[in-house]
């Protein structure tokens, strides 16, 4: 089990890279409205399934400021697009977005367009806020509930402890899918994006806390027997006051758990949208975008629609890099268990 106190050696380069990526992603998500060239719901005329526009700096005439060639629809049914290499559309900075096409009728599609002609890049960028936001909120909720529950069980001890942990195990085994389904059926038909966001975070927290509770309980139980806890108790601190002294010991574990929960919940977001509790149109989220890309026809004809999968990979990869030290055996057990019980 991880000890929370030791800060350990300095960060490895891998960790630095991981953190840098995470910071970049977080910044990107926060600044998405200023980065995205288009609004998430904008359906561009004649751009359904349009491939990415390649940004170039060089053509036969030599080097230029970044530009792209205009795209034209040549065969709608066969989804063929041509590029007009005679004209250059320069990119401009500012004008509502970090990078933007200088011609209003020639949209910049860095990652192509989806089946409705919406800019995939903008949707991935804007979707990061919803997908990462709900995941983080859900994970934090799970940590909070789990830590409180685990600590309570450890301190209560004895029969209460046994029953509490049995309850945690039960929640762990209960497939969250049913919860989602019943919840969806009982709720009003129309849920706003904000409603869905909060509900999903709540659901994630309610489904994932037992992992945390198990670990926290074990750590707290051990720590309570250590000298400093005994000392605190001897100094007259009550049973519950001692917990306040002991809880910091779970910090390392909680950090490691966060690194496991975020990927699990990211894939849960995708799974939940299959079951009808996803974000409503036209709100972009990585899960709902992947749901559309998840068939062979789309994959082969418009592979750029897999961009959210790449985004998911980058986030999880960066997390793995950043948390390289945290991967211990105990954590691994929990990661498998969390994979198993989430509807993914």
């Amino acid at each position: 089990m991880m000890r929370g106190h030791d800060t350990g050696p300095a960060m490895t380069p891998a960790q630095r890279v991981g953190r840098a990526i995470l910071v970049a992603v977080a910044l990107g998500a926060l600044l998405a409205p200023w980065i995205a060239p288009h609004r998430a719901g904008d359906q561009l005329t004649d751009r359904a399934y349009a491939p990415p526009t390649r940004v170039r700096v060089h053509d036969a005439a030599g080097f230029h400021a970044p530009f792209f060639y205009p795209q034209t629809l040549t065969d709608r049914l066969r989804r063929q697009f041509g590029v007009d290499t005679a004209t250059r559309v320069p990119l401009v900075i500012g004008r509502g977005a970090l990078l933007q096409s200088s011609a209003g009728d020639q949209p910049l599609l860095l990652l192509g367009a989806d089946s409705l002609g919406r800019d995939v890049f903008s949707r991935v960028a804007l979707g990061a806020r919803w997908s990462l936001g709900v995941t983080l909120l859900g994970a934090l909720g799970a940590l909070l509930i789990g830590a409180m529950f685990g600590a309570f069980a450890a301190v209560a001890g004895g029969r209460a402890d046994a029953w509490l942990m049995r309850f945690a195990d039960f929640v762990l085994v209960l497939p969250a899918v049913y919860l989602v389904l019943v919840l969806r059926a009982l709720l009003p038909a129309v849920l706003s994006t904000a409603d869905v966001f909060l509900l999903m975070a709540l659901l994630f927290a309610l489904a994932a806390w037992p992992h945390v509770a198990r670990g926290v309980r074990a750590i707290v139980a051990v720590e309570l027997r250590r000298d400093y806890a005994e000392a605190a108790r001897a100094a007259g601190a009550g049973r519950w006051r001692v917990v306040a002294h002991v809880l910091p010991a779970t910090r390392g574990f909680l950090a490691a758990e966060m690194i496991l929960l975020v990927p699990a919940l990211l894939s849960a977001e995708a799974a939940v949208s299959y079951l009808g509790l996803g974000f409503p149109e036209p709100t972009p989220s990585w899960g709902t975008m992947l749901q559309e890309a998840a068939n062979v026809r789309v994959l082969t004809e418009a592979p750029w629609m897999l961009a959210p999968a790449a985004a998911l990979f980058i986030v999880v990869f960066a997390l793995q890099l950043a948390g390289a030290r945290a991967s211990t055996r105990a954590v691994f057990f929990d990661s498998l268990a969390s994979h198993a019980s989430d509807p993914s």
Binding site: Q43, T45, A48, R76, L77, R79, L116
Partner: peptide, 8 residues
């Protein structure tokens, strides 16, 4: 017709 049905 153009977007959803690709003209078909």
């Amino acid at each position: 017709v153009d977007t959803v049905f690709l003209g078909a």
